[in-house]
Design a protein around this nucleic acid. Structure first.
Lengths: 242, 242
DNA sequence: CGGGTCGTTGACGCTCTTCAAAGCACGTGG
DNA sequence: CCACGTGCTTTGAAGAGCGTCAACGACCCG
């Protein structure tokens, strides 16, 4: 089943799943759905019964404040869960917006929890995936709490590149990036105006160029040094559970 | 087993655990250990085989940057896991420091994963606990990314109060708080000097007083309004899985 | 009594936000 | 085919928020 490839690859990085386990995973996948860019899939406060796995396109999860400000918590790329936390908790604590047009595969919570009973290793794999997601949110918190605007931007772009590389999109020279400067601002806790200035600075210093939907690393090594980028938190090593 | 009470209470909020499941949980708990304040339990980069459940005292998990700055990701109070993410991922992406002298109960990862095979509902409960922890990190990210210093402080103190209330420590009038202003600064992405100024401001405006290890809510309603505090993300509702 | 940790306060300046305006690429309708 | 709107980017100027530096006081424990 082609849909599952990015997910299986991701879960397989932690738990070597058997054919039987993979087929259980396949039965969880219900219908395929499409959503258009900019129209929320999930609203803050909504009660859900379904989560999704992103098949193609980019999405972002965010929280809105009463005064209209928003904080983007994370971006999702193919293979990532959408709204897994929403269904485990009783109500969604965040909203999800497709950044581009996206395709997703639906999963019902009840099915997922039921599957854990017969396929405990699957539960372990999902717990690992959730931990990895949390590790990325944590690194994001460090970004926003303790790095200045330029370091924050550099670190963020390097993290995105590393995640995209894992699913075969982009390399050390750069990647295609559908985000606007407003997305970057809301993710990094900056104003859009300042995002623009920081991008200019990084470009003029010959480290990275963000233009026309393309991120180009002009000097990857220097950028990584500048951002103090250490990808070990993404846990892209070998399976722990064999 | 008295040790497990806060944990069982927490997990029970999501999954009504049977006596059999509770006894499995009890067998996971190995020896009791104590650590003194200020001496790290877990170091960033360390490979672990054990996680802990906090029985008494406060701890914090944090990440250090190369230039010596630190970001505190979360504080742990009795009933919380310590280092669960460290053992699911291959290496710890953070350090853990006891804020006070603490007592913990050790759990071996291998045992925990093994228990999932026989007690899948336990896996679900642990996945829920991990999701709830993630939700708190996410709210913390919103704090640091989009709230000013005073709102951030107010929101943070209200969240702590709500968590402590769940385990029977503190109420709407306030709580005992062993944190220093340096802890608050490292958690909120501020300087210790500015933390002091913000605390003075909140105190002079009659909303909350932080003094001598005690947080006193002088006007809870106004503080909650000021911080736009909405505790729903902590998911303190009824069990989803019965 | 002396040193260490924590809290407190003032002065100064940098980072980042806000406000304002203009340019570019696009799609849409006349 | 051009006028017009809309979303995104770009740039400047002014000022607020918060960090840094520096100093001092309170308390605890050796």
């Amino acid at each position: 089943m082609i849909d599952t490839t990015p997910l299986v690859k991701k879960l397989g990085a932690f738990v070597a799943l058997s054919d039987a386990e993979l087929s259980v995973l396949a039965t969880l996948l219900k219908r395929r759905r499409s959503f258009v860019a900019g129209r929320d899939l999930v609203h803050q406060g909504q009660s859900d019964q379904a989560a999704y796995i992103l098949a193609s396109g980019w999405a972002c999860s965010y929280k809105l404040l009463e005064d209209g400000q928003r904080q983007i918590v994370d971006f999702q790329i193919p293979g990532d869960f959408l709204g897994l936390r929403s269904v485990l908790l009783h109500v969604s604590d965040h909203s999800i917006e497709p950044v581009t047009d996206i395709e997703v595969t639906e999963i019902h919570v009840a099915d997922l929890l039921e599957a854990f009973a017969h396929t405990p290793r699957l539960a372990t794999a999902v717990l690992w995936a959730a931990s990895r997601d949390e590790a990325m949110v944590v690194e994001h918190l460090v970004d926003v709490g303790r790095r200045n605007a330029a370091e924050r931007m550099a670190h963020f772009l390097l993290e995105l590149a590393a995640r995209l590389f894992l699913i075969g999109q982009g390399d050390r020279t750069g990647f295609a990036c559908p985000l606007t400067q407003y997305h970057l601002a809301d993710a990094l806790g900056l104003s859009a105006v300042h995002v623009n200035r920081v991008l200019r600075q990084l470009r003029e210093e010959g480290m990275v160029t963000f233009r026309d939907g393309l991120v180009t690393f002009d000097d990857y090594a220097r950028l990584a040094e500048f951002a103090q980028f250490d990808p070990s938190y993404m846990d892209q090593a070998n399976p722990l559970l064999r």
